[in-house]
Every structure is written in structure tokens, then in C-alpha cells.
């Protein structure tokens, strides 16, 4: 069951990567980064159960905590950029 979960996560990762590479707008890429982060967290958790060490769950929780930093930074940057562009026009 955990193997099936891992396979599904990897398939989802491929899709998110494709969106990050192709994604025409910035928002597609932001979403892809965030999604890859979440999938890494889940993959670490699933890996912990596959290799019989459920204490990996704590590690993945900590990852989830730092995962959003990059996303928020990018969003703030885009917001500021847009505000500046609006002011100039």
C-alpha cells in the first residue's frame, strides 16, 4: 500500500515538474514549487513507513514547517513588483 502511495507521489511529482518547466505564468511555477515541497514531505513520510522507521514522520512535519517560506517570499516579491508596475503606468 505504501509502495502504491510512493508511486502515486512520484507520478504527481512528474506532473508538477512539467508544470514548473512549462508553466507560462509565474503563478503556475509558484504553485508547482509549493506542490513539490508538499510531495517531498509526503514522500519522506511514506519512505519512513516503507523502511520501517515511522519516526521519519517528525522530520516530514518539520519540513512542512519550512516549506512555505520560499512560497511566501516569491508571492511577496510578485506583489511588490506588480505594485511598482501599477505605479509606473
Amino acid at each position: 500500500m505504501f509502495l502504491a502511495a510512493a508511486a502515486a507521489l512520484i507520478a504527481a511529482m512528474v506532473l508538477a515538474l512539467a508544470r514548473a518547466f512549462a508553466g507560462p505564468t509565474v503563478y503556475d511555477r509558484i504553485l508547482a514549487v509549493n506542490q513539490i515541497g508538499t510531495q517531498t514531505v509526503l514522500l519522506i513520510a511514506v519512505m519512513g513507513f516503507i523502511s520501517g522507521r515511522p519516526d521519519f514522520l517528525d522530520i516530514s512535519l518539520l519540513y512542512a514547517l519550512i516549506n512555505f517560506v520560499a512560497t511566501i517570499a516569491v508571492l511577496r516579491y510578485v506583489k511588490r513588483d506588480r505594485a511598482r508596475a501599477d505605479k509606473q503606468s
Binding site: 515538474l17 514548473a20 518547466f21 508553466g23 509565474v26 511555477r29 509558484i30 508547482a32 514549487v33 513539490i36 515541497g37 517531498t40 514522500l43 519522506i44 519512505m47 521519519f56 522530520i59 519540513y63 516549506n67 520560499a70 516569491v74 516579491y77
Partner: peptide
């Protein structure tokens, strides 16, 4: 901007690899 975000993904994948 896209390159910077793709590098962020690179780091997340590397973190998974380290685990």
C-alpha cells in the same frame, strides 16, 4: 524568476535524496 523557483525545486528534491 522561473529559474530561481526551479532551483528551489532542485533543493527540495536534493533534500528528499539526502533523506
Amino acid at each position: 524568476l522561473a529559474s530561481a523557483m526551479v532551483l528551489g525545486i532542485y533543493s527540495l528534491l536534493m533534500a528528499g535524496l539526502w533523506v
